[in-house]
Design a binder for these strands. Structure first.
Lengths: 241, 241
DNA sequence: AAGTGGTCTAGACCACAGA
DNA sequence: CTGTGGTCTAGACCACTTT
């Protein structure tokens, strides 16, 4: 039950704490590596190991010949992560519910089969849902496709987030998602369901979800009311090496 | 024009090449650190430095006591990065050009001043541009705002990517961007400039660009023709710390 | 020129996985 | 048990930025 923790990790966390609590405010120049190493009684390499981790976390910045400066006091959050619509809304304080309009197993059209990397003859579960916010106002029309091999059945509970189903039923681990976002004009059917005028601008999100080995497990085409939803993305700049 | 390249970087790139060309196929177990170090006549630390970079890139995986295995042959591309519209289009093989409709220094409205974290009285350069694809078809209407402190002048060359200007003139380093994407109906003015019908759906992108210390250096409101442009985002799933 | 981070060496012992 | 990666030391010299 003894828990071994390397020295450099202890030092790293100690420094991280000092930065996050403001004992080392933004703008502070840290002592040189050698001095820090001496202070803590470790070799320069060990001290360096601790420091470089913090650079990786974006808390400090180093310049050869200049020094090491604290540039941020809180852990970096400059990156968007893949989330389902339900969780996305919940994070913004909007509670919503879904109603299933239809659920069937079919052979999807070629474009969708291609996105899901289906071989000829393979089918997919097609799911159409309408998601509304608490007051009952319709928000989004969702057309989801899940390959049959994932193992989801037409009588599963689709009012819960689809990701949970995919990950639990298929025992899969989602790695990333690819979103393509555009704008489109509401068709008569969409207008009816979403309670907007025909031709009104809708936000269109087409999402492909991937598990290990670049395997797609879900394709969703969503149409959202532009007055109720905006898509957010925080993108880090490519790090040159 | 010094050409000094550290040994570990040379070794890293050599290994990377061998992996990407398939000389070291996926599944291969690499020789132990000590052996590799001996092979290349460097110390273990140097060899290790090269290897760890490849772990960071997701090309290989290490397990203590087990070994080092090649797990991917191509660099990871499961993450979108911040890019300007120009570069984004260029990567898709679309060449485009921009024409400046207006450039002036003004006090922006409160919403925009807030995005740029301007104090009372601070002004910003307002820039309106129309970007068209090669054939001359209009693609996007861009309203850009850059705080005065960045140092960009109204007579700079705005047909070049704005990021280059910001980074070179202001000697700044862009860290990340925050995009908010929605759909809107074209106003009369927008319809005229973009050559679409009034009320036609447009893709709306509002982007705030940040440099060190969470400082915003640019705010752009873009309206794009939905038939010519789609926004792409590849989002990794949140990794448990 | 001085000081800082960047690279590199030649060792050593420890923690962990597999046979 | 053996072998692997993980950690650590005590030096050294180099490249870069600032003074």
């Amino acid at each position: 039950m003894s828990k071994y923790v390397p020295v450099y990790k202890q030092l790293r966390e100690m420094l991280r704490t000092q930065i996050e609590t403001g004992q080392l405010p933004v703008g502070t120049t840290l002592p040189p590596e050698v001095e820090l190493a001496g202070t803590f009684g470790v070799s320069r390499a060990t001290m360096r190991n601790a420091i470089l981790d913090l650079v990786e976390d974006g808390l400090i910045k180093r310049k050869p010949g200049a020094g090491t400066v604290v540039i941020r006091s809180k852990p970096e959050e400059h990156r968007s992560y893949f989330r389902g619509l339900t969780e996305d809304l919940r994070r913004r304080g909007i509670s919503s519910s879904a109603s299933v309009l239809s659920a069937e197993v079919t052979r999807p059209n070629d474009a969708i089969a291609d996105h899901l990397k289906l071989t000829r003859g393979e089918s997919a579960l097609k799911l159409t849902r309408l998601r509304s916010i608490a007051s009952g106002v319709p928000l989004a029309l969702l057309h989801s496709y899940v390959p049959e091999w994932v193992g989801i059945k037409v009588d599963d509970d689709f009012t819960r987030p689809l990701y949970e189903l995919v990950e639990s039923v298929g025992k899969l681990h989602i790695i990333y998602g690819h979103d393509v976002i555009g704008a489109s004009a509401a068709t008569a059917e969409q207008a009816e369901l979403l309670d907007v005028a025909v031709g009104a601008p809708l936000l269109s999100i087409r999402r492909t979800t991937f598990v290990e080995h670049e395997r797609p497990v879900e394709y969703v085409q969503a149409y959202l009311r532009n007055d109720l939803y905006e898509y957010h993305a925080v993108l880090p700049r490519e790090t040159g090496r």
